[in-house]
Amino acid sequence: MRSRTGALTVAVVALFLGVLVVSQFRSREAFSRTLQQETPETLTTLIADLSDRNRQLRDEIFDLRSRLEQARSSIAGGRGALEESERELAHLQVFSARSAVSGPGIAVRIVGPFDERALSDLVNELRNAGAEAIAVNDRRVGPRTWFGPGPEGTLVIDGAQAQGPWIVRAIGAVEVLYVGLTRTGGIVGQFQLIYDRTRFDVTREPLLRLPALSSP
């Protein structure tokens, strides 16, 4: 009986691994096929983006190694890992939008008709430009924030109705954020063509204060 159960377990695991290998192979094959269709300009942009991301990862690995070393030496010296834990807590509070934050960034003022999909696209673009914290009017954008339509001049953010005009503020590297949004063919230029009755102003801000997330 035991050997039959064992054989069944082995068969289920083998089947699962087989499905996994096949699906990974298919996904890799599909990815290679997509690359074949891309232009050299697109491939070059992808290479630049991947290199940039790999540099960020390398920096974080370097930083984490040094923090590990410091924590080990602090524990060995009888001081525990309190300092490292407090540092990580502060990082995670920013990353998960659980604390009010301040710092330099940009503000996008939107006066006129605007919809939830455009707002979602704007937030996506700000994240793409490396925004560390984002707020729409007085509401902080969190990891699970969603946008929905509302009655005339309003939108729904995380289930709560919010009233325009809109001011979207983002903390991060000011020039990267500013150029990311205002470059030729960028999202603000596209918005100006689509929402021709709406005014969009992007400004650099030396100090922004954003509230903590108000919903879980």
Binding site: E38, T42, L46, D49, L50, R53, S96, V141
Partner: peptide, 22 residues
């Protein structure tokens, strides 16, 4: 996650800085 963005380069998608396709 809170920092995730999704964008296209050609028809290739970049999610969290990782390339993906349909």
């Amino acid at each position: 996650v809170g920092s995730s963005s999704v964008y296209c380069v050609g028809s290739t998608i970049v999610v969290n800085g990782t390339v993906a396709s349909a």
